[in-house]
């Protein structure tokens, strides 16, 4: 029992390092994930993530797939899976990290990162379906929402439209669909930022090029702080030139 557990812990550490090194495929990582959760937390009782959360659903499914296993059996299968995928791991692990040097194990500071804020991805999503689809880059769902009569310019909490989301995330297919359905290319959010401002800030060049070329686009539009999209864009976006603040207005 103790041996299985020890071997499992060593294997889990090894998988962590191997995952960062890119030696394991996504499919393998998902199976490791599912077995790990089953081995440490037991059966999955989390609700199924929303349709748009593709990663969340993949991970949730992997955990569910291991539901029939006891925790010990999940540990055993985890080690076995690693031994099949990377037969030399046990030797490499003994010679490599013992875990003691990680996170300053023997003394010293800690390499801490920002922890994910759980609260902003949990709880019901109050955004209208069209905005959710634009955020997720799901052109099918966006088309369905528009078909069902959704206003292409409906607003989210910050006065942003679906076009803002598509621009911010660089989802070109959704962006084109919205433009085809007459979405307002100059729509300003509550701070006066247009979709093109968003694309410039988020450095989504493809989206910015589409927007800049869209009919009716006013390139020199300023936000609440008096900045044009060109003011906010990275260097070298020649297609926005001529509309920097102080420059000639388009």
């Amino acid at each position: 029992m103790a041996d299985v557990e020890q071997e499992f812990e060593a294997a889990a550490q090894y998988v962590g390092a191997a995952a960062a090194g890119g030696t394991l495929s996504d499919a393998q990582l998902l199976r490791f994930y599912g077995l790990y959760k089953q081995a440490t937390a037991g059966p999955c009782d989390a609700p199924k993530p929303s349709f748009f959360d593709r990663r969340g659903r993949a991970k949730w499914q992997a955990w569910k797939d291991a539901a029939a296993l006891s925790m010990e059996e999940a540990q055993r299968q985890y080690v076995q899976l690693l031994s099949e995928a990377l037969p030399g791991w046990a030797g490499a692990s003994a010679a490599g990290s013992s875990g003691a040097a990680k996170r300053g194990g023997g003394g010293g500071p800690v390499q801490s990162r920002m922890a994910d804020a759980a609260e902003d991805s949990e709880g019901p999503d109050a955004a209208p379906p069209l905005l959710q689809a634009a955020r997720a880059g799901d052109a099918g769902a966006a088309a369905a929402a528009l078909q069902a009569g959704a206003d292409p310019d409906q607003r989210g909490n910050d006065g942003e439209t679906a076009l803002h989301w598509a621009a911010d995330r660089g989802h070109i297919a959704v962006l084109q669909l919205l433009l085809q359905h007459g979405a307002d290319v100059n729509a300003a959010d509550s701070d006066g930022l247009t979709p093109l401002h968003y694309a410039a800030l988020a450095e989504q060049r493809g989206a910015a090029e589409q927007l800049a070329a869209a009919p009716g686009m006013r390139l020199g539009q300023r936000n609440g702080d008096g900045e044009t999209p060109a003011d906010l864009a990275p260097e070298g976006w020649a297609f926005l030139q001529g509309c920097r603040s102080g420059g000639e207005e388009a």
């Binding site: 812990e9 889990a12 550490q13 998988v15 962590g16 995952a19 960062a20 890119g22 996504d26 990582l29 998902l30 490791f32 994930y33 790990y36 440490t40 593709r54 990663r55 993949a58 991970k59 875990g99 990680k102 996170r103 880059g137």
Partner: peptide
């Protein structure tokens, strides 16, 4: 290959896993 950063996400998730085990 997954096109949307699935690999990165999983790696991050696995990072969190080893934290559970060895922190």
């Amino acid at each position: 290959p997954a096109g949307d950063g699935l690999a990165e996400r999983l790696r991050a998730a696995l990072g969190a896993i080893t934290m559970d085990g060895s922190d």
